[in-house]
Computed example of a mutant assay.
Amino acid sequence: MDTTPEQWRDGIVALLPRLRRFSFALTASAADADDLLQATVEKALSRYEQFEPGTDLDKWLFRMCKNLWIDEWRSRRVRGPSVDPMDFRSEIQVDGEKLLQDKVSMLEVREAMDKLRDDQKVVLALVAIEGYSYKEVSNFLDVPIGTVMSRLARARSALQDILSKPQVKKEKGADNAY
């Protein structure tokens, strides 16, 4: 059964919330996640002719998103990081000890995830955040299920190690340990 362009676009729209969460898990920035999501959807819409009927749309879009992120990450390594000062002012601040603790915890987790290797970060995002099964992630990434399990185990262990150690100020130019 062939999918009409309208059905195909509706499928993309239905995947947008999950794709945005995945983008945020990769980038750790709402603005960058939105940019990555937009680039992914733009690329997907321009490649309708290349989409083969019977291909899993989830797999196709998540792989496209991951590849775009890797390309962007590599180019940022060459260009260097950029900071948007408006990111800090756009958040609405609410008093409350619980909210502050939650924000600190989320920041620590985001920073810890940034220290993970890319392959571990991708698997962790797909399994822990998106809720995909090991088999689905294996299919998305075209790797054996054992590789998914191994990467996930290493990612979880690395996160636990990072989060359990006292925070030390990162030295300029220090490489990721994981």
Rank of each mutant, 00 (worst) to 15 (best):
M1W: 13
E6A: 08
Q7K: 04
V13K: 14
V13Q: 15
A14N: 09
L15A: 07
L15Y: 04
L16F: 08
L19S: 05
R20E: 15
R20Y: 13
R20W: 11
R20H: 12
F22V: 02
S23C: 09
F24Q: 02
F24T: 00
L26S: 01
T27D: 05
S29L: 02
S29K: 03
S29E: 11
S29R: 03
A31E: 15
D32H: 07
A33N: 06
D35M: 02
L37F: 06
L37S: 01
A39S: 12
A39D: 14
E42I: 07
E42H: 09
K43T: 08
S46F: 09
R47E: 13
R47H: 11
Y48S: 09
E49Y: 06
G54M: 04
G54Y: 00
T55D: 15
D56H: 07
D56Y: 05
L57S: 01
K59W: 11
K59S: 13
W60T: 05
W60F: 09
R63T: 10
C65P: 00
K66L: 11
K66S: 10
K66D: 09
N67A: 10
N67V: 10
I70F: 14
W73S: 15
W73R: 12
W73Q: 12
W73N: 09
R74A: 15
S75Q: 13
S75A: 14
R77H: 15
R79T: 13
R79L: 12
G80F: 06
G80Q: 03
G80L: 04
P81R: 07
V83I: 13
P85M: 05
M86Q: 13
D87K: 01
F88N: 06
F88D: 15
F88Y: 15
R89C: 14
E91V: 14
D95I: 07
G96E: 05
G96L: 04
E97W: 10
L99W: 10
L100P: 04
Q101H: 09
Q101R: 12
V104K: 15
S105M: 15
M106Q: 15
M106P: 00
E108D: 13
V109N: 05
R110T: 13
E111K: 08
A112W: 05
M113Q: 06
M113W: 04
D114F: 14
K115S: 08
L116C: 05
L116V: 02
L116H: 03
D118C: 00
Q120W: 07
K121F: 01
V123A: 02
V123F: 02
L124P: 00
A125E: 04
V127Q: 03
V127I: 12
A128F: 06
I129M: 13
I129H: 07
I129W: 11
E130M: 10
E130D: 11
Y132F: 10
Y134A: 05
K135I: 12
E136L: 05
V137M: 02
S138K: 01
S138P: 00
F140G: 01
D142H: 12
P144V: 00
P144Y: 11
I145C: 07
I145H: 10
G146S: 12
R151M: 07
R151S: 05
R151E: 08
L152A: 09
S157M: 13
S157G: 12
S157K: 13
A158N: 09
L159P: 00
S164I: 00
P166C: 03
Q167T: 11
Q167I: 15
V168Y: 08
K169H: 10
K170V: 12
E171R: 07
D175Q: 14
Y178R: 01
